[in-house]
Structure formats: structure tokens, C-alpha cells
Simulated scan of single mutants.
Amino acid sequence: MTDSQTDRSGRSLSRRTFLAATSTAGALAVAGCTENTDNGGNDRVVVTGSSTVHPVSDRMAEDFMAENDNVNVTTDPTGTGGGFSNNFCPGDSDINGASRRIQDAEEQDCSDNGVEPIQFQIGADALTVAVHNDSPVDCVSYDELAQLWMQDGAETWAEVNSDWPDEEIERFGPATTSGTFDWFNENVIGDAGSHIEQYENTENDNELIQGISTTENAIGYFGYAYYRENEDDLKALEIRESEDGECTAPDLDAAQSGEYPMARPLYIYASQESLQRDVVYDFVEYYLEQASTDTVTDVGYVPASEDQVESNLEKLENAVN
């Protein structure tokens, strides 16, 4: 850790109470509809967004609250898109987790509401495709995945590969408000078509795990952290980007090196207006500093690099100057 990081991490809530006291009235005006305190009078930070990023945000919130009395950080896995449209851009949350970059329409929506999103990359994911444990399928290509998941695509596994079962494909996936859905649709299906509409969908990744693990001929996709917590209950498929490519299993090392084709960055977006509130600034600062530690690895994602942390902290400082 550099000297500048040490200086920043040494700044506590108690050392910044003067700014908090003098800016409360202004923060009420600029923070949209976000409530600055909970029913118990605690300083409040509201985090919404990606169900993939949620386990990291939840862990950061727990650790931060353990070190700071009278602070309440709430986290809600609304999905990336759902969080932007329903919470963050209207000014009802301070931070939005995202498993993809914010879209132009979302940025415009935020701007229309006077919300300026500040992007921070906090790690990376090995997006995982999984099947029932008894499935004979071990590896799939992007093209095969597109056939399995696109509208008017294959109805049975055998239609994609004659060595696979002549059984109907049972699909479990994220809702259309999910950044994971958006990433998969753009990067895997791409120009081949559009994502199938008829499938079991939810923002609750644990429900996806439950569905795949108990349904023969099932397939689904979600963040790697959820697979790692349940790896005995279902089988992760190896992925190859092309038909003649090498099959690579999802894991953190392969995602970090770029060897795994479905590695993707993870983000949080903080409202520039909310960052003027001391408690939000301090929580985001803590989050960014911890993003390169075992906290992220323990959850099941690739941590941010030291260079990313330093860049993030500089961006954070600039956001309030």
C-alpha cells in the first residue's frame, strides 16, 4: 500500500464529523430520494444492483459496519439494470453494483434526474455455465451456447450435438434486468439472434442453483461465486470460444489470466451527489481499498489489482473536489 493510500485509509468517520455536520442540509437536497438515516437515526448508505456483485457488497457492508458504529449499509440484489432504472438513477440509492458497464440510455436517465454515476472496477468474474450433475455434457462452445439459448434455437440437446441427449432443454437464467443477462446476450449470442424468452428466470442466483441441481437436462448461467458455494450440487461446463478452441473450466486463475473466455469485469457505480455525504464517501473508500484483498477472493471473484485500486481512489478523490 502506498503512502497516499495509507493516509486515505487512516481517515475515519469521527475525523470528518465537521464536514458531515455542515453538509447534512445540502446532502438532503442533492441525494435525490435517498434517506440519509434509518429509523434508528443511524447514517445510512443504500446499495442496489447486480446480484453477481451483491455478495461482495454485502461482505463489505458487514465489515464496514463492524468498524463504524451508528452506520447502516443496506444491500439489495435488484439486478444491474433494475438497480439503475428503479433505484440509482431516480436517486433512491447511493451505489449500484453492475456486472456490465452502464448503458447510454441509463446514463441519460441518470442525467435527467440530476444523478452523475462514477464508475469503479472492483474485480472480475468467471461467468459460469452449469448443468445437472448427471449431464453427459462437459464442454460447450460459444456457438453451441448460442443455439441452446437463442430464440427459435434448439429445443433438444441432440439438435445442438448428436452426442447429447435427445431430451428437451430445461433453461434457468437471470432476468432481463440482470447485467449477466445483458453480458451473455451481447457476448455469447451476439449477432446469431436474440436471447430466448421462454425460460425460468430470476434475480435470485440461489434459485437458479436449486433449479439446475434438481432438474435433469437443465442448464443455466450465473456468477462464479454462486457456483463455488454449490459445486457439489451441479456441474460447471468448460467453455471454448470457437469450435476448435481449447476447453477451459471456470476458475479465478483462468479468469485473471484471460484464459477463461467468459471472464468479465465487475463494477460499482457511486452517485457523485451521494459521495458528498461523508458516510457514503467513507464506505466507498473502504470498499475500493478492500477490493484488492482476500475479501473479494473469499467471496469467489478475482480481486482488483493494486493499479486499479490506486486509480479508483484517485477517481474517488476527484469526484468530491
Rank of each mutant, 00 (worst) to 15 (best):
M1Y: 03
D3T: 12
S4M: 08
R8L: 13
R11G: 14
S14I: 12
A20L: 14
A21K: 15
T24P: 01
T24E: 11
A25M: 08
A29Q: 09
A31P: 00
N39H: 08
N39S: 14
G41K: 03
V45F: 10
V47T: 07
G49L: 10
H54L: 00
P55D: 06
S57H: 07
E62N: 08
M65D: 08
M65L: 01
A66F: 00
A66W: 02
A66K: 11
E67C: 03
N68G: 07
D69G: 10
N72A: 06
V73M: 10
T78H: 05
G82Q: 11
G83P: 13
S93V: 11
N96M: 11
N96R: 07
R101Y: 02
A105L: 08
A105G: 13
E106T: 05
Q108N: 08
Q108D: 12
D112R: 11
I118Q: 05
F120N: 14
Q121N: 09
Q121C: 06
G123Q: 11
A124F: 01
A130K: 03
H132M: 13
N133I: 07
C139G: 01
C139M: 09
D143W: 06
E144V: 12
W149H: 10
M150F: 00
G153T: 03
G153F: 00
A154K: 14
E155L: 01
W157V: 12
E159I: 10
S162N: 02
S162E: 02
D163W: 06
D163M: 08
I169C: 04
P174N: 09
T176P: 02
G179F: 07
F181C: 03
F184E: 10
E186Q: 13
G193M: 00
S194N: 10
S194V: 01
E197D: 15
Q198H: 02
Q198K: 10
E203L: 04
D205E: 15
E207N: 10
Q210P: 00
T214V: 06
T215P: 06
I219G: 09
G220M: 12
F222H: 13
G223I: 07
N230L: 04
E231P: 03
D233Y: 06
D233S: 08
L234P: 02
E238G: 04
E241T: 03
E241Q: 09
E243N: 10
G245A: 14
A254G: 01
P261Y: 15
M262E: 12
Y267M: 12
A270K: 00
S271K: 11
S274L: 04
Q276F: 11
D278C: 09
V279E: 14
V279R: 04
V284E: 13
Y286W: 01
T295Q: 09
D298I: 00
D307L: 03
Q308G: 02
Q308P: 00
E314K: 15
E314G: 14
E317P: 02
V320L: 07
